Amino acid sequence: MADIVSPKTRSRMMAGIKSGNTKPEIVIRSGLHKKGFRFRLHDRKLPGKPDLVFPRHGAVIFVNGCFWHGHDCHLFKWPKTREDFWKNKISSNKARDITNIATIKNAGWRVAVVWECALKGKARLELDSVIDLCSFWLRNGANELEVRGNESGASI
């Protein structure tokens, strides 16, 4: 199936996609800041540059886009063009995520992942619920948290 936009337009569109300070990330950090949490952003000393780093709580939060990280939800669809490129790209991202999270955990940090589908789309959760889950996790000391859209549920 051919792309519906020209290669030049597609290139411009893809170049405009940010890796940090995305809307889902800003929503999460704003909600946690209102709850009194203080954090560092995109700490380059840690593998994968976690979106939020909470030194006081020994925790990090990644806010992952479902497409770029190959999440198994309704927001992820394999592109129909350049299939080999995208399979390689997204598979590499997933492998890098696994390695980065393992390295961070081995260094003694707790890790949470908030997926984009928890914040938007047909399976989204209430924003207050997502913030409350993250807040509870930060305070209770559990090692891991993954927040996904309703179709998959949230788990601590």
Rank of each mutant, 00 (worst) to 15 (best):
R10L: 09
S11D: 07
A15C: 08
A15I: 12
A15G: 11
N21V: 09
N21K: 10
T22K: 03
T22W: 01
K23M: 05
V27Y: 02
R29G: 06
R29Q: 14
R29W: 15
S30H: 14
G31K: 10
L32C: 13
K34P: 00
K34H: 12
G36H: 04
F37K: 03
L41N: 12
L41D: 04
L41W: 06
H42C: 03
R44I: 12
R44W: 02
R44L: 11
R44D: 09
R44Y: 11
K45I: 08
K45E: 13
K45M: 06
L46T: 06
L46W: 07
K49L: 04
L52V: 05
F54L: 01
F54S: 00
P55S: 02
R56E: 01
R56V: 00
R56M: 02
H57Y: 09
G58H: 08
A59K: 14
A59D: 14
I61W: 14
I61L: 13
N64R: 12
F67M: 12
W68L: 10
G70R: 15
G70A: 15
D72F: 02
C73I: 06
L75V: 06
W78A: 15
K80H: 15
K80W: 08
R82F: 04
E83F: 05
E83C: 01
E83I: 13
F85P: 13
F85C: 11
W86T: 10
K89Q: 13
K89L: 05
K89I: 05
K89V: 01
I90F: 11
S91K: 10
S91A: 14
S91M: 01
N93M: 14
K94P: 01
K94I: 15
R96A: 15
D97P: 11
I98S: 06
I98Q: 14
I98G: 03
T99W: 05
T99S: 08
N100I: 10
I101S: 07
I101T: 14
I101M: 12
A102L: 07
A102N: 14
T103I: 12
I104N: 10
K105L: 15
K105T: 15
A107M: 13
G108H: 09
V111E: 07
A112Q: 10
V114F: 02
V114D: 05
W115D: 06
W115I: 07
E116M: 08
L119E: 09
K120F: 13
G121L: 13
K122I: 12
K122Q: 12
A123N: 14
R124I: 00
R124C: 04
L125N: 09
L125D: 00
L125V: 01
L125P: 00
L127F: 02
S129T: 09
V130N: 03
L133R: 13
F136S: 09
L138I: 06
N140H: 08
A142T: 04
E146P: 00
E146A: 10
V147I: 14
R148V: 02
G149M: 02
N150F: 04
E151Q: 09
E151N: 12
S152C: 03
S152R: 15
G153L: 13
A154M: 15
